[in-house]
Structures are given as structure tokens and as C-alpha cells.
Design a protein around this nucleic acid. Structure first.
Lengths: 242, 242
DNA sequence: CGGGGAATTGAATTAAATCAAGAACGGTGG
DNA sequence: CCACCGTTCTTGATTTAATTCAATTCCCCG
């Protein structure tokens, strides 16, 4: 065990040793030397729930990997109506390359920890390492698939189906190892009712009513507002419209 | 003029000479040699309106550039409810790299002409030419931005705002040179009312009523159902909720 | 224990969907 | 060229899902 550890982590910076981004995230594209170079200029932060990470139309000069927690990406209309257009979980890459301005807001939904690097360094590494850009393309394609799935949910599902779909999506992202065979799972909701409403294009009252319905129908249990236990993923899925 | 032409098109395949994809599309990443190689294995098609280009869950073994016309990308729920999740105009690249199955349907909304290449060739060229992958990443990031913009429209705008937003989007895509100063423009709608409804998450009746409203309010004129003249882009924009 | 934001619940309202005719359009063939 | 047909689109009347408005109730935290 010790030996295996030594072999595997030879030359890998301490900062990166147990980092998920090195395995499933973009850093997997880097060899130990590059990792050392990047680790030297990167820094770990923890962010309070509610803190803004990227402001609308603000210039972005750093990129990050999400190490833990949930980041919500939002867009707003001029009169204040808001829509959550994506959620990022570990080990997602956060930031919009090749544009000086971000058209979206990013905000910590829960406590979040990030590993951040200066914009210029990543862009240089991307030019040097096609594999890094390749990983980023793959993540972007996945995000595009997710966004399009949500468009179906937003445009064509009923309130009941939206809420069921949302719970399923969260369950799968919080616990990515979730076996399709298991039928029961539980998790902390990373979003408030207001956030869920902004994600689903509904009002908080409608979200609340639909959750109550799922609860009284015995598909879920809710403790302390945030802790959800799904007692039948199958039944939940059948109400999600998919 | 003749001289300039000759210099610029030296070694460029006839097929690609006047192709927009060479300028604004992914083929701009290729040098004349690569272009010749690709042109040898690529073929131009024209597709009837309504023809299916990529079937849901079908294996995709070719990619294409859109040369003209409009392609709609759709997703459906099991009970038939449909959502259009994107539109592709020239010179967009069509296809989902790195996945054997496509999760979406692609269908010609208008008459479409395509330039298609075998899947394997493009993937090989992508490995050889990071610049090609870079272009693709940029297009994908743009599509992601568009998808997220639409999520706001789907989730948070009223029917009236949705229809106004749709007309603006079409006007800008049909005529990409559209000067923000000009206030009047006209175009053929590439979609039927049913398509528009599927795009906006509405019913055809609601789309029709909103178009009638814009017409009676003097913002647009409609001839023969499909030909739209926007008489005030400014007023249209102010009704789009942005 | 008590204050304050978050969530739930109920009643009334409304925007959009549904149901139901017609009208306009675009091919086709006489 | 015009009459016919099927499709697409428009318009109107009604219904309904979700919003809005309005109290409570429930948690969390000091």
C-alpha cells in the first residue's frame, strides 16, 4: 500500500494528491511536471454560502476547479427575474475561457472550496497541452448536453415533473456512485426553495406545494427543510416525465 | 482582384473556395494541405425540409458543416412532448464528438445544404490539429452560452416576451451583418408556428396570438405566413424582456 | 426564549392551455 | 387560370395550472 502510494504520487504536488480534479477533472490532462508548475501558482479557497464568485459583466481573471460544494450559475433579466442556468459540482472547471467578460453570475450555493489559478497561466497551458483543451472540450460538451436536457424540463414539463426531475438530478450529482439498482437515497439539498424555483422557472410556493405532494404521497421524506430522503427513486423517476 | 483571388485560393479545393465554414467555421483551422485531404473525403448534400439528419439514439458516423438553411435540434419526452433545444445556421458544425450516440434529433427546418465527412477522419484530424479542436471548443462554448440564454427565456419570460425574443434571434442569425443601428429588417421565418411553439415552450395558438398582437401593434408585418418584416427592432427589443 | 428569515398552506387571480370553429395559404390537376 | 383539397394558421370561448396575495408555522441562531 505504502509502496503503491509512493509510485503513484511520485512527483505529484501535495496540494493535488487527493484532489478529484486530478482524476475526473481537467487536471487529469497534466503530467507531474505540469502539475508542479500549476500547483505553484494555484491557491485553495473556501467560500461562504451566498458569496459571489463571478459577477455579471465582470472581467474574469482567474479560473477554478470546484473541490467541494455546489456553485450556481445564474442569469437575470433587467427587472430582476432570475434563472439558474447550471449547477457545478466537484470536480467541475469554473470559468468561461476566451471571453474577457462573463455573461453569467456564479455564486456559492453551499460552502464551496475552490482551487484557483490565474487566467493567463491556464490559457498558456492550454496552448501547450492539447490534452488540457481536449478535457475542457469534453466538459463543455457535457454541460451543453445538461443545458439542453434542462431546456426540455423548462419548456415542456409540468411543475410536478420539474420538481421530481430536480430531485433526481441532485441525487445523482451529490452521490455520483449512485447505483441505478438502489431505490433509496438521501442528501442535503444544496439549494433553498427560492433557488429551486429559480432553477425550475417556478415560484417558491409552487415548489413547496409540489414537495409537499411528493411527501404526502410517500415518495420522499423531508427533515429540517433541507434533508431529503428519497424512498423510491423508481417512483420519483416515473413522475419526472422522462 | 483576379490576382488577389489567385493568391488567396492557391491550393484551396474548389469545393471549399466559397465555403463559409472555411472563414467563420471549423475549417478555418485547416491549412491548404489539410483542406485538400478533407475535401477528398467530404461530400455536399442538399436536404429536404423536414428530413431527419440525426435520429435520437442513433449512432452517428458522420459530421457536417451547415452550408445553408436551418437545422433544428430537438429532444422529446416519451409521451411526445417536444422541445427544440437549438437551431444551427451556416457555418455551424453539426454533430456530437466523442459520443457514439446522439441524445438529440436533428432535422432540416428549411432546405439545407451540408458538407459531410466521415466521423473517423474528423476525429483523426482533431488529434493531429489542436487548432481544429480549439475552433470546436469555441463553437461549443458559444452554443452553451446560447442554450443558457434560452433557458432564461424558457424559464422566466412571458409568452409575449418569448415570441419577441424569438423574432430578434432569428433576425440576427439570418442576417449576421445586421447593424445594431438599423431599425428595420425582413426575413423568411425558417420555422412553422408549431416549431416556434416547440422552441418557446408554448402552444401554436399562443404563438399565433402573440404574433397577431405584434402585428396589430405595428411592430411587425407578416406576409404569406412566413415572411416577416420588423418595422422597429428597437420596440421589438423592448418587448423581449432582455 | 424570542426574533427573523425560510417554508408552508390557503384563497383568489390570471396567463396560457385546451377545445372548437373558421380562414388563409400552397400545391395539384383539370 | 381557377377550383379543389389538405395543411397551416388564426380567432374565439372555456378551462386549468400555476401565480399572486396573504397569513401562519417552522427552523435556526443568538
Amino acid at each position: 500500500m505504502t509502496v503503491r502510494q509512493d509510485v503513484h504520487s511520485a512527483g505529484i504536488p501535495v496540494l493535488c494528491q487527493s484532489c478529484e480534479a486530478r482524476h475526473r477533472g481537467v487536471c487529469g490532462a497534466l503530467d507531474p511536471d505540469q502539475l508542479v508548475g500549476l500547483a505553484r501558482i494555484s491557491s485553495k479557497h473556501t467560500i461562504e454560502p451566498g458569496a459571489e464568485l463571478i459577477g455579471d459583466a465582470e472581467t474574469v481573471d482567474s479560473y477554478s476547479n470546484v473541490l467541494s460544494g455546489v456553485v450556481k450559475l445564474t442569469k437575470s433579466l433587467s427587472d430582476g427575474r432570475q434563472q439558474i442556468v447550471g449547477l457545478q459540482f466537484a470536480p467541475d472547471f469554473l470559468g468561461r475561457p476566451f471571453k474577457v467578460e462573463s455573461a453569467i453570475n456564479a455564486e456559492a450555493a453551499t460552502a464551496v472550496s475552490l482551487c484557483s489559478f490565474p487566467r493567463a497561466s491556464i490559457e498558456r497551458m492550454m496552448r501547450e497541452s492539447p490534452e488540457l483543451e481536449h478535457r475542457l472540450l469534453k466538459q463543455t460538451l457535457n454541460e451543453l448536453d445538461e443545458a439542453r436536457d434542462w431546456m426540455v424540463t423548462l419548456g415542456r414539463k409540468t411543475a410536478a415533473e420539474k420538481v421530481a426531475s430536480f430531485l433526481l438530478m441532485i441525487a445523482r450529482n451529490i452521490d455520483p456512485t449512485l447505483d441505478p439498482a438502489t431505490n433509496v437515497t438521501s442528501f442535503e439539498l444544496p439549494l433553498t426553495r427560492a433557488d429551486i424555483a429559480d432553477f425550475l422557472g417556478l415560484t417558491i410556493e409552487t415548489v413547496s406545494r409540489q414537495l409537499t405532494r411528493l411527501r404526502t404521497d410517500g415518495l420522499i421524506r423531508i427533515e429540517n427543510n433541507r434533508h431529503v430522503t428519497v424512498t423510491s427513486l423508481t417512483r420519483l423517476a416515473s413522475r419526472s416525465g422522462a
